[in-house]
Amino acid sequence: MAKRIDVNNLNAYYGTFRAVADVSLTIEPRSVTAFIGPSGCGKSTVLRSLNRMHEVIPGARIEGSVALDGEDIYGDGVDPVNVRRTIGMVFQRPNPFPTMSIQENVLAGIKLDSGRKSKDELSEIVERSLRGANLWNEVKDRLDRPGAGLSGGQQQRLCIARAIAVQPDVLLMDEPCSALDPISTIAIEDLIHELKNEYTIVIVTHNMQQAARVSSSTAFFNLAATGEPGRLVEINPTDQVFSAPREKATEDYISGRFG
């Protein structure tokens, strides 16, 4: 069920402003791909284009194509709702639904699928997803308590559980650890290692050590100047990007000379 993503000539706009220019890249199934680059380089915008979340911002649109195992998710007659059901997303700030319990949060995506499920099936999904997110042991005795009552790291893992509960093909993570403490960050990184056996994972991160630790491929984005669109500088195996980058700009960035 993990799928491959082909991005071809992607241009992303906010109103008339072109935020991302001419991005083409391929993301392999069952791998972790990290997007790195300075603020404003368009890495989050590219990520949000992969599950059609970019366009929910008023005035935002894209040109180009994004194919999921060969099928263009921006094609005619493709419903963005269905795209988002197959490509899950985890956000920068943990965002469990505050009015829902832990269990209801996990099942939020399941409830959208019209097919009725029995109580046993549902509790099995809850357990499987929470175990998958390494959260089960911490919350199994309080599944009916509010999700917002958990710690930040637990909330983020709850959001991951919510995203994997619907068994998506791809999991997108937009700086999932930037609001978390180091211990919680390690917990999430361990989790990413486990999840890549089943999912195609794309993670945006500002933390280059994190990119080096969790990803097998790294894409470096950069922008020429403020107000210019962000561009993909290079995408290569992570080892190579961090030891012998092909581009000078990448080397400057990862060695801390700018950004």
């Binding site: 700030r93 965002n95 639904f97």
Partner: peptide
């Protein structure tokens, strides 16, 4: 909050489902 709306949409909620999942409970 915008991030609750986006959480619902990213799960594949339609506009009405998003309203039911994020907006109405929060606004209750």
């Amino acid at each position: 909050p915008r991030n609750h709306v986006e959480a619902a949409l990213a799960l594949g909620a339609t506009r009405w489902e998003m309203v039911r999942m994020a907006v109405l409970p929060f606004g209750r």
